[in-house]
Structure formats: C-alpha cells, structure tokens
C-alpha cells in the first residue's frame, strides 16, 4: 500500500542536511512523516500552502521557504498533496 511513499520519504531523508519530511493531503491530514517532524504540523503545513497559493492563483503552486539562521522548512503543493522538508543550513 504505502510502501512507495515510505521509499520516497527515505530517499528525501538521504539528502544531505535533511532532518525530516512530512506529506499532507488536501484536508491537512498527515499521509506520512519521517525524521524529527511532528505529525501534528501537517494541518499547518497544508494551510500555509493553501494561503500562499492564493497570492497568485493563475500560476502553479509556489515553493515556500521559512528559514532562520540554522534551519529551513521548504513547502510545496502538488495536486492534492503538500510536502514539507525540514533541513539544516
């Protein structure tokens, strides 16, 4: 069933600097999480992607990056799925 998604998440975590990743469905429910990320942030990640997409509805979904001095969170929606990757800078 979700073996493919597990494999994708493992691939993402194998990238240098990546600490965790979360995938969310269109309702903000968590489809899967790897690493230190909490599954509770799924709803927030989905909401952020929704709000950012409203800025330019005629364009394809934007890539949102939150970062501080040490870490970054990258969010993008593709169709009904939203992915978030947390990584160290």
């Amino acid at each position: 069933m979700e073996k493919h998604l597990d494999r994708v998440m493992d691939d993402v975590l194998s990238n240098p600097g990546v600490t965790s990743c979360v995938f969310v469905d269109h309702q903000g429910l968590c489809l899967g999480a790897r690493g230190k990320a909490s599954t509770e942030c799924a709803g927030i990640i989905g909401a952020i992607a929704d709000q950012a997409a409203k800025l330019e509805p005629q364009h394809k979904s934007p890539i949102i990056v939150f970062e501080n001095d040490t870490r970054a969170c990258i969010i993008q929606r593709n169709g009904t799925i939203t992915g978030a990757i947390f990584k160290n800078i």
Partner: peptide
C-alpha cells in the same frame, strides 16, 4: 532545494496515487 522539494512532492504524489487496498 527547489529541485529537492519539487521532485519529492512529485514522487510522493505519484506514490500516493498508487495506493490501493490489497
């Protein structure tokens, strides 16, 4: 980073599309 997130989300979308009850 752009490549990372876009490929990851594309792959995840494809993977979730393949989910079916066995």
């Amino acid at each position: 980073d752009l490549n990372l997130i876009s490929t990851a989300v594309t792959k995840a979308a494809a993977a979730i599309g393949e989910i079916k009850v066995e």
